[in-house]
């Protein structure tokens, strides 16, 4: 194909890129503008919104709360899911198909349905709402973590190794920590990063189940949005920076793995 005929494709792609980038770009400018409300262009540039974001104790607290909730939920997911996946594929192979479809179910389940089910069932009981959110987080990332665990178990051919260890008399705890974990550590890194970025952007479940009682970064953003546009845009840009960093890491690790396999 000649170079001359490629311009329509370039045009389409440039239009797409503009549509996708303009909202991000305007948010970036807004976070750097001294004031920008009635004019087409901002009146001056400043970093003070970023400074006031980091000086705001409610922002720091929201960040800590978010990290705490995500890390604890993900630790529980790993501790529960790794032995489950191993045991099912070793000892209950006939249940594997059923198990797989159950685990992948939440892919298709919108957060709004999960949230209304949880509230319907538990709002009258004296269960801390935070535990419900943690449970919901578990369900949200379960499919991603499952695929990461299963793929890494298969790629290092783990099952015969475990069977050998069992035959030689190792106990289950030892097998878990000295055989399974070291071998799948790298493989579950990517799915953990992906899960982390999904939970970092979670708003629906958190807002409906605990709401303002446990202000995560998303709920903080939603509240600040009604107060100061400039600080909110600084938060959005910082949030996107973290997410881009995470996806860059994910791409880096996935490509690294592919090269090794070849």
């Amino acid at each position: 194909m000649s170079e001359g005929r490629k311009w329509p494709f370039y045009l389409i792609v440039i239009l797409l890129a503009l549509y996708l980038i303009i909202p991000l770009f305007v948010t970036l400018i807004y976070s750097l503008a001294t004031s920008w409300s009635t004019t087409i262009l901002p009146s001056g540039l400043t970093l003070k919104w970023y400074a006031s974001m980091f000086e705001d104790p409610t922002f720091i607290n929201a960040l800590i709360r978010t990290l705490l909730l995500i890390l604890v939920s993900m630790a529980v997911v790993l501790i529960v899911m790794i032995p489950t996946v191993v045991i099912v594929s070793m000892h209950f192979p006939r249940l594997e198909k059923l198990f797989q479809s159950i685990v992948l179910l939440p892919y298709a389940m919108p957060g709004i349905i999960l949230a209304s089910g949880l509230l319907q069932t538990y709002s009258s009981l004296e269960i801390p709402k935070l535990i419900l959110v943690g449970g919901a987080y578990f369900i949200v990332v379960m499919p991603y973590m499952y695929q990461g665990i299963r793929n890494s178990l298969q790629s290092v051919n783990m099952i015969p190794m475990i069977e050998a260890a069992e035959l030689l008399g190792s106990n289950q705890l030892k097998i878990f920590f000295s055989i399974i974990i070291p071998n799948i550590k790298k493989g579950i890194l990517v799915s953990s990063l992906l899960s982390f970025s999904i939970l970092f952007g979670e708003f629906t479940l958190t807002n409906l189940v605990v709401g303002g009682n446990y202000e995560t970064i998303q709920i903080y953003l939603f509240r600040v949005m009604q107060v100061s546009g400039h600080i909110s845009s600084a938060v959005v840009i910082a949030y996107l920076f973290v997410l881009s960093l995470l996806s860059l890491l994910i791409i880096l690790f996935t490509n690294g793995k592919k090269k090794k396999q070849v």
């Binding site: 890129a17 948010t27 970025s197 546009g229 845009s233 959005v236 996107l240 997410l243």
Partner: peptide
């Protein structure tokens, strides 16, 4: 490069997206 941009923007949803469109 385009796929990288797409990957980044596909994370851009929910509250931050609504906010960006409000200032736009």
């Amino acid at each position: 490069r385009l796929l990288l941009i797409l990957n980044a923007t596909s994370n851009f949803a929910g509250v931050p997206l609504a906010f960006a469109f409000i200032i736009l």
